[in-house]
Amino acid sequence: MQILTEAQWLAATAAHEARIDALTAGHRTRRAEGRKHPVEDFLFTYYPWTPAQLRRWHPGAGVALAGGGSAPQRNWRFYRLTGDRVGVDLDAFLDARGDTVRFVRDLVSRTAGRPGRFGCFGLHEWAMVYRLGQDQVRHTAWPLRLGQEGTDEVVESHQLACTHFDAYRFFTPEAAPRNALRPTRAGQAASEQPGCLHAGMDLYKWAMKLSPAVGSDLTADAFELARDIRELDMRAAPYDLRELGYLPIPIETPEGKAEYVAAQRGFSERGQRLRRRLLDTLDRVLGQVPALESSSPST
C-alpha cells in the first residue's frame, strides 16, 4: 500500500484539476453559450462523464491518503476511512463491479495480444451516412465534403472492414452488408484489435467505468488519447469541417490513406501502452492489493 502525505495528495489533486480544466475549457465555454461542436462534444455525449466528474481526483487502488479525515474521498462511494487514512475499498468495489472488472480485463488483454489492422481508412464514418440525405446525417449542420453522390461512391469503391461493434452498429442499413465482418456485442472480445480507433477511444470508457479503482492519471491519459483520436476520426470523415480548423484527410486518395494509416499506427502504440497500464491496475484489483484495515465503508 502506497501512502501519500496530505501535502502530496493535495498537490496531485491540484495538478489533476488544472490538467482537466485546460482539456475541457473549450467544451465548458461552448456549453455555457449553448453552442455545439461536432468533434469535441462526442467525448461528453457518447461517454457519460461530465467535465466535473472527470475533474475529480482518484488515487487508484493500492494508494491510501494520510490525513484522510480531511480528504473529500472519505465521503465518496467505494472509499473507506481507517484511522487517519482513506483509500479505495476493494471488497465493496468488487462486490459491485467485479463482473465489469473481469469483462474489461479479458477484453483488453485479448485486444492487446492481437496485431493491429490498418486497412479500414476510417470508412466507418462514411458508412454511417451512406445513401442518406443531408437532413438525416448525424451532423446536419456540416456539409459532406464530396456531396452525397461522391460520398456514396467512396463507400462503393472500397471494401469496408470495420471490426468494432459500436461503430458498425451505426452503419446505415445499405452499408452494413458491405462490411467484410459482422461484429456483435457478444463477440466483441473475439474481434477487437489495437489498430481500431474506436477501441483506442474506448480505453477512456473502461477507465471511467472502473473508477475509482483506476486512478485519475490513467483516466486522464485515456481521455487525452480519445480526444486526439476523435480529431483524426473526424478529419478523415466525410464532413467538411474546415471552418472549425480541421483540415480533411482525403482517405479516398493514396496520399490520404497513407496519412491516415501513419496516424492510426501512432495511436495504436499509445493505446497499447495504456492497455498495459490498465491491465496492471486490474490485476492488482483482482489480486486484492493489501487493503486498509476493516472499518465502516463510506457512502
Rank of each mutant, 00 (worst) to 15 (best):
Q2S: 10
T5Y: 09
T5L: 12
A14P: 08
A14R: 14
E17N: 06
G26V: 05
G26T: 07
R30C: 08
R31N: 11
E33F: 10
E33Y: 03
G34T: 05
P38W: 01
D41E: 14
F44M: 05
Y46V: 13
Q53C: 10
A66R: 14
G69V: 03
Q73R: 04
F78C: 04
D84E: 15
R85N: 10
R85G: 06
A92R: 15
D95I: 03
G98P: 01
T100H: 14
R105W: 07
G113R: 06
R114A: 02
P115S: 13
R117A: 12
C120V: 04
F121L: 02
L123D: 04
H124P: 00
L132D: 05
G133V: 04
V137G: 02
V137R: 11
V137C: 10
P143M: 05
R145Y: 06
G150N: 10
G150V: 09
C162S: 02
F165D: 12
D166S: 09
T172Q: 09
T172R: 03
T172M: 04
R178H: 10
R185M: 14
G187Q: 01
Q188T: 13
A190Y: 09
G195W: 07
D202G: 02
S211W: 00
D221N: 06
E224A: 12
R230Y: 00
A237C: 15
L241D: 00
L241F: 11
R242S: 15
G245A: 06
I249A: 10
E252H: 12
T253S: 15
K257I: 04
V261C: 07
A262C: 07
L279C: 05
L279W: 07
Q288D: 04
P290Q: 12
